[in-house]
Each structure stands twice: as C-alpha cells, then as structure tokens.
Design a protein around this nucleic acid. Sequence first.
DNA 1: GTCTATATAATGATAGAC
DNA 2: GTCTATCATTATATAGAC
Lengths: 217, 217
Amino acid sequence: MRSTDLSARARIREAALVRFAEDGFDVGLRAIASDAGVSPALIVHHFGSKDGLRAACDEHVSEVVTHLKLDSVGPGGPEQMLAQLAGGDEHAHLAAYAVASLAAGGPLARRLVDLMTRATLESLEAGVAQGTIRPSRDPGARARYLTEASLGHLLLAYRHAREAGPVDLATLFAQHAANVVGPALELFTAGIFTDDGYLRAYEAATTPTAHDQGDES
Amino acid sequence: MRSTDLSARARIREAALVRFAEDGFDVGLRAIASDAGVSPALIVHHFGSKDGLRAACDEHVSEVVTHLKLDSVGPGGPEQMLAQLAGGDEHAHLAAYAVASLAAGGPLARRLVDLMTRATLESLEAGVAQGTIRPSRDPGARARYLTEASLGHLLLAYRHAREAGPVDLATLFAQHAANVVGPALELFTAGIFTDDGYLRAYEAATTPTAHDQGDES
DNA sequence: GTCTATATAATGATAGAC
DNA sequence: GTCTATCATTATATAGAC
C-alpha cells in the first residue's frame, strides 16, 4: 500500500490490462507505453520484460477475482461469474482481461477455470442438498464437465465476436445467453436421450460386478 | 490436376500445413521454407504473401473435409468428426491443421463449426425419427448449442495440452473422451434438474399465450 | 521457377544521461 | 524514476540475377 502504487507503475499496469484485453497479447510495448504516458523503457524498468508485465497483470486479476464475493453460479453456468465481474462497477476492464486471458490461454486461464469449476461444484452440491439438482455418479467430474463446456462455448462466441470487431462484454454475454438459455434448459431438464440404454451400458462397463472384481487375468 | 501440383508449390503447402498445426500461425516463413527445402522468397512468389499461404491451406483443408464421407455424429459429439479425420489414414495432418485452426480462429474455423453443426443436426433428427432422441422446441438451436459447447470444450482441452508440450491428436481425443463420456451420458440421459420448473417458466415467458398475442402495447 | 541479396518495418531490450 | 537514443533481432516482402 505504498503511495507509489498510484503512480506510473500502476498506470502502466492498468494501460496494459486494457490493451491486452482489447488488442490481444501481441500488442507492442510502445502502444502500452503511449497509453500510460510513459516511455517503453520505463515499462521494462518496472516489470523487467513484457512477460513480467503480463505476469503482473495476471497476478492482479487473479488476486481481485479470488477475493471477490461471487454469487452462486446457478443454472446460467460459470459465465455468470464473468458477467457479474463485468457488470456495472469499476471491475469491467478486469473482466475483459480475464475473458481475453481465458480465450488466449496462458497461466491465468487454468487458474480461472479451476476457480469456476469449484464454484460450480459448490452450487451443484447445494442444489443436490436442496433437492433441485440430481445427484451425480461423479460430482467432481460433472462440475468440471459443465464448467469447461459452457466456458469453451462462451469463448467460441467471444472469438467469433472479436473477429467481427471490438467486443462489448455486456452485449456479448447478453447475446450468448439469449442463444443458449433455451437449449440449455431443455437439455438440463430432460436430457436428449429417450431412454437410459447408453448410460446403463456405460455403467455396466465401468462399474465391475462383485464377480468381476479381483479377476485381473 | 496439373503435374506441377506435385512439385514445390504442393511441398510448400504441405510443410505449411504441418508447421501451422504444430507451432501456430505465428511461425515464420523461414521455418516453413526450410521444411519445404525452398527459399522464403519462393513462398511469396507462389502464394503472394503469408496470408495467401494460409488461405491456400484453409482452402485445401476445407475442400477435403467438405467432400469427405463422415459417419454420423452419434452421442460422442462432433469431436468424432475430427477424431475420424485424424485416425489412421493419411489425413492426420489435415486434422491437426483443422483443430489448430479451430483453436486459433480465422476464416476456416467458422466454416468447420457450421459444417459440424449441420452434421449434428442431421444426426439428431435421425435419432428423433428413430425414437432414440427427444424432439426439441428448436432443433436448429439445440444442434448449434450442442456442437459449439462440445467443440469449445474440446478446444479448451487442446489448448491445455498444447501448453504442456507437443500434442498427439489421437491421445488428446482419447483422454478427452475418457473425461467426458461419463458426465455427458449422465446429462444426456436425465439432465441435471429434478423437475421442469425452470423450463416451464422459460417457456411461459417466451411462448406467448393466445391472449398475449397481438397485444404489443 | 528458383535463387541470393536486400529493403523496410517492427519488435523487445539495453545504456547511460539526468 | 524517468527519459532519449540505440542495439540487435526478427518479420514479411521485394528486386533482380540466373
């Protein structure tokens, strides 16, 4: 909490956060330096290298997201966490950076996926306890599956929108939700199979009977 | 079908296909030229520019994939199409390029997503006719939702694997399938909600009653 | 068609004055 | 801490000989 935190170093990090989110991680140091109103050399002086700058951005976002009180995920999926981060307050550019980071990959991406998986698991288990969500054979695998699938879906939509032009996250989330809610509710309510033949066959193959157990030949 | 097709031009395109897939689209012309055993200038001579080279790769893959007889998608999802392309025969590097292209975005990506969405729709409708798949309120939206979600999920796994090291597609597909089959079958068989409250509420809000219709004030 | 040699532009990073 | 000036590298693309 040094007072220098409000100075050039923080200004550079903020500018980088925005530039990385808007133009991708291939953007040059000169553009960031120009946005921050400093010289390119000062960036290197403060962060060591471009990777150091990105690492500082990652750490900052990771810290804020981790310590943020997020509502339960609910049936909308983990993209609600991002939408919540993006919505309204001054964390909007953090959300933009988080989404860009998820789309581009890198160290922060895995952390965010894990974080959302955990939140999804908690939400699902709460639903199970309440009786609104069906129990699962493997709750952890289900939470990871649902989280990664809906996140991957969102990132596909994000990339698609980005290729058309600058992305407004609020618009993106709204349009994506509109496309997804119907089919998702349908799927989550009744599945797509008319009977449980596939699942029963899979369970029969993966959960060995008492007779099969201990027979390794 | 000119005989020159077997010469340097084709060799460059093949080398580019492999390099783009393995190292991403940021790879330099020098690396591709070296692989093809030609000078960088010859690449520009034949393809005009680096983008021209990529466009030629896109077109080649697009053409092969479009004219390929692919089995129906089935419950495994659209990644089966890619796994089928990758498996066995000499199209393996085309599949690698297709996956890399899907992961990185660009013009080919949208074409492939559309293609797989159509295949998924056909497969689902066949299942509906057979009685194994439940009918949908909006079959087109459902096919797109399922295709994009499972593709997005696969691409997340692909990127994750790539960041660890070189990717063998067959291994990737196998591991991803192993992680996904259980939760997917569970979801596709019975959903995750214990009752249809959410869906009924959504349907009530989006399908206006006879009384509501025509009332736009 | 294919090459060597080069032009031109942009990058990340450094040196050293202030 | 912050700057100017510059270096070294790499990139795509071009010019022109053969």
